[in-house]
Simulated assay, not measured.
Amino acid sequence: MFFTYILYSPTLDKYYIGSTAGLDERIKKHNTNHKGFTGRAGDWGLKWKEENASKSGANIRERQIKSWKSRKMIEKLIIEG
Results as ranks from 00 to 15, higher is better:
22 G>W: 01
23 L>M: 07
23 L>N: 03
23 L>W: 01
24 D>S: 14
24 D>M: 13
24 D>Y: 12
24 D>P: 10
24 D>N: 13
25 E>S: 09
25 E>D: 13
25 E>I: 12
25 E>W: 09
26 R>K: 15
26 R>H: 11
27 I>Q: 02
27 I>K: 00
28 K>C: 10
29 K>S: 13
29 K>M: 15
29 K>A: 15
29 K>N: 10
30 H>A: 08
30 H>R: 08
30 H>Q: 14
31 N>C: 04
31 N>A: 05
32 T>L: 15
32 T>H: 11
33 N>P: 05
33 N>D: 10
33 N>H: 10
34 H>A: 08
34 H>M: 06
35 K>S: 13
35 K>E: 14
35 K>N: 13
35 K>Y: 08
36 G>K: 11
36 G>S: 09
37 F>Y: 14
37 F>S: 07
37 F>N: 03
38 T>R: 08
38 T>M: 11
40 R>E: 07
40 R>T: 06
41 A>F: 03
41 A>Y: 04
41 A>V: 09
42 G>E: 05
42 G>N: 14
42 G>W: 01
43 D>P: 08
43 D>A: 04
43 D>L: 04
44 W>P: 07
44 W>E: 09
44 W>S: 09
44 W>G: 06
45 G>H: 06
45 G>P: 00
45 G>F: 03
46 L>E: 01
46 L>R: 01
46 L>H: 02
46 L>A: 01
46 L>F: 00
47 K>S: 10
47 K>L: 07
47 K>W: 01
48 W>Q: 04
48 W>K: 06
48 W>S: 05
48 W>R: 07
49 K>D: 06
49 K>E: 15
49 K>L: 08
50 E>D: 12
52 N>G: 07
52 N>Q: 07
52 N>W: 09
52 N>M: 12
52 N>D: 14
52 N>K: 12
52 N>E: 11
52 N>C: 10
52 N>L: 07
53 A>W: 06
53 A>H: 08
53 A>C: 05
54 S>N: 03
54 S>W: 01
54 S>D: 07
54 S>A: 05
54 S>H: 04
54 S>E: 05
55 K>T: 00
55 K>N: 03
56 S>V: 10
56 S>D: 12
56 S>Q: 10
57 G>A: 14
58 A>T: 09
58 A>V: 09
58 A>H: 04
58 A>W: 01
58 A>P: 10
58 A>Q: 08
59 N>K: 13
59 N>D: 14
60 I>C: 04
60 I>S: 15
60 I>V: 10
61 R>P: 04
61 R>I: 05
62 E>M: 01
62 E>F: 00
62 E>P: 00
62 E>R: 02
62 E>S: 02
62 E>Y: 00
63 R>L: 04
63 R>E: 00
63 R>G: 07
63 R>K: 15
63 R>W: 00
